[in-house]
């Protein structure tokens, strides 16, 4: 009797699943739907939105801008001035000149301040996002290689791990509840991955459901918002700490970046 009702339940679920699949594909396989949307962009526009951001960033990168009328071509992302190939794969890391651990976004801001002479409050978030997309595009599909070595990097990683497990807010949430306990499963319709499974390997990415470019910091902010915690400020320590934690774990899991900027839901 119980077996039979289980079977009927299974068939009902299967039928329901199929009917949803036929009407709203993105509700069943978000990855396939993202792939489909990406193809549609290619066919109609010939270019992906992420590539547009990157192109915009490339222009900003080479332009002489700011009070010092300089380009960003001398910016050192850790591999030497102006070396962009694979730069994102080893970020966040410690920089002796600013004496702090910086992620890609924070490093871009530092260079805008130090090379171009911008005051931090005059730096437009949209510019940083475009520049992030451009620099990240030079690490497309490369293996992630974040291994905290200096004491500053190890301290930042430990901070990130602590924040990862920090339960707070009126939903008693932390990152681990979704991204460790239920990694590989789904939260409602969204697939969730753990850091080891490569969470964070597609950012910066264009999200077609939001029609916006999200950097990793934007994505972290979105997670906090969705659990009722006000996100940390951009370029702040919690952002950098969580980034180095996730990317160091992704490195342990031998993950590569996807196409960058990514294209996702």
């Amino acid at each position: 009797m119980r077996d039979r009702s289980l079977w009927i339940g299974f068939l009902v679920a299967l039928g329901l699943g199929l009917s949803i699949a036929l009407t709203q594909q993105q509700e069943v396989d978000p990855y396939k739907e993202a792939e489909r949307q990406r193809e549609l962009f290619r066919q109609t526009a010939g270019i992906l939105p992420g590539e547009l951001y990157a192109a915009q960033g490339e222009e900003l990168f080479a332009q002489k801008r700011g009070p010092k009328n300089a380009s960003l071509e001398a910016c050192d992302f850790g591999l030497g001035p102006g070396k962009l190939e694979g730069a994102l794969t080893q970020l966040p890391r410690y920089f002796a000149d600013t004496r702090r651990v910086e992620d890609l976004e924070t490093r871009i801001v530092s260079c805008m301040v130090n090379l171009q002479g911008f005051r931090p409050q005059d730096i437009k978030r949209e510019d940083v996002k475009a520049l992030t997309a451009f620099v990240a595009s030079k690490s497309t599909e490369m293996p992630i290689n974040v291994v905290p070595r200096s004491s500053q990097e190890i301290a930042m990683y430990n901070l990130g791990r602590e924040l990862w497990y920090h339960r707070a807010g009126d939903r008693d949430m932390n990152c681990a509840i979704c991204h460790d306990s239920y990694a590989g499963g789904k939260v409602r319709l969204s697939p969730v991955r753990s850091p080891r499974q490569g969470l964070s390997n597609e950012w910066p990415a264009y999200r077609f459901e939001a029609d916006k470019l999200y950097t990793l910091e934007d994505r972290i902010a979105f997670c906090y918002e969705s659990v009722g915690i006000h996100p940390p400020e951009y370029y702040s320590e919690p952002m950098i700490a969580l980034s180095i934690y996730m990317l160091a774990e992704a490195t342990k899991g031998k993950n590569k970046f996807t196409e960058l900027p990514g294209f996702t839901r």
Partner: peptide
């Protein structure tokens, strides 16, 4: 945490 801003 404090460096993430007051609201955070």
């Amino acid at each position: 945490i404090n460096s993430g801003g007051n609201k955070f």
